[in-house]
């Protein structure tokens, strides 16, 4: 929800980033305020997922220019775990399977680590079990997923639900959902979207990285940005997503009146 008096949560200025020696992000600008939902759309290879990973601090992506201010703090030199503790969350496009680590053990470790860093109370296994089961209801998740290894043998939809469960536990200020809709059937998509909507509030913000309009039927964005060649080339309201769905990306591509990426 857009509110005039809302404070800025994320400011990205002229962001440049490389993977190995190839420049992927070439001057990206974005401002996100509390309470807002932003969608970043674009063709494959436009740099959407790279942006998500750079925000989260993936070591394989090297920032070569610009700055990222999160909640007023420059996070470019922070390790991924420091960004997570500060309230940044990335829901992975391909959540990693970790055989041998029970999901509940992993969730509790992540929860308690972040709680401890934020000076809040940690939960013992029994307390955590009650807590996490309550959160799982939000996502219609079977508690049986607690005993299994992290993401191992989960279906695409189950993995994505497990990501949103982590978001529910870690209560980030800014959540970046990287292609969370990919690989989901319509029922799973509804459940995931319902969960995300319940977590969205006036105090936090969401960035939805997505290829298709479909997700935006269920999670309504305040802004839609289109990325091409490592930059945001157009920014508009949610109606832009519908136009993209109807007409594809070609009509914007090379548009001479490129948006700066910063909202009016």
């Amino acid at each position: 929800m857009i509110r005039a008096d809302s404070s800025i949560l994320l400011e990205v200025h002229d962001l440049h980033a490389n993977v190995e020696d190839t420049e992927i992000l070439k001057g990206l600008n974005l401002t996100v305020k509390r309470g807002e939902i932003h969608a970043i759309m674009g063709l494959n290879g436009s740099g959407k997922s790279t942006f998500a990973k750079v925000l989260a601090g993936h070591p394989a992506y090297r920032m070569t220019g610009g700055e990222i201010l999160f909640n007023g703090m420059d996070i470019t030199s922070l390790a991924p775990e420091e960004r997570a503790r500060a309230g940044l969350f990335l829901a992975f496009q391909y959540p990693v399977e970790i055989p041998g680590v029970a999901n509940d053990q992993f969730l509790r470790l992540a929860y308690n680590t972040v709680q401890r860093q934020r000076g809040k109370e940690e939960l013992d296994p029994l307390e955590f079990d009650d807590f996490v089961r309550e959160k799982m209801k939000l996502l219609d998740m079977n508690p049986g997923f607690l005993d299994r290894s992290v993401n191992e043998g989960f279906s695409g939809g189950e993995k994505k639900r497990n990501e949103i469960l982590q978001m529910a536990l870690l209560e980030p200020m800014l959540a970046v959902l990287d292609e969370t809709d990919s690989g989901l059937d319509i029922d799973a998509l509804r459940i995931v979207a319902k969960g995300v909507n319940q977590l969205a509030s006036q105090d936090n913000a969401l960035i939805l990285v997505t290829h298709y309009q479909r997700l935006l039927d269920y999670i309504e964005p305040d802004y839609v940005h289109v990325m091409e060649a490592g930059r945001i080339i157009k920014t508009s309201g949610k109606e832009l997503a519908l136009e993209l769905e109807a007409h594809g990306y070609d009509w914007i591509s090379g548009d001479k009146t490129r948006a700066s990426g910063v909202q009016p």
Binding site: A56, G57, H58, P59, A60, A79, P80, E81, R83, A84, R85, F89, L90, F92, P95, V96, I98, F106, L109, A110, T113, V114, Q117, Q166, L170
Partner: peptide
């Protein structure tokens, strides 16, 4: 696995 390490770090665990 580097991806698994990043995944855990992105959930708050140090390296």
């Amino acid at each position: 696995d580097a991806d698994a390490l990043f995944y855990l770090q992105s959930r708050g665990l140090n390296l």
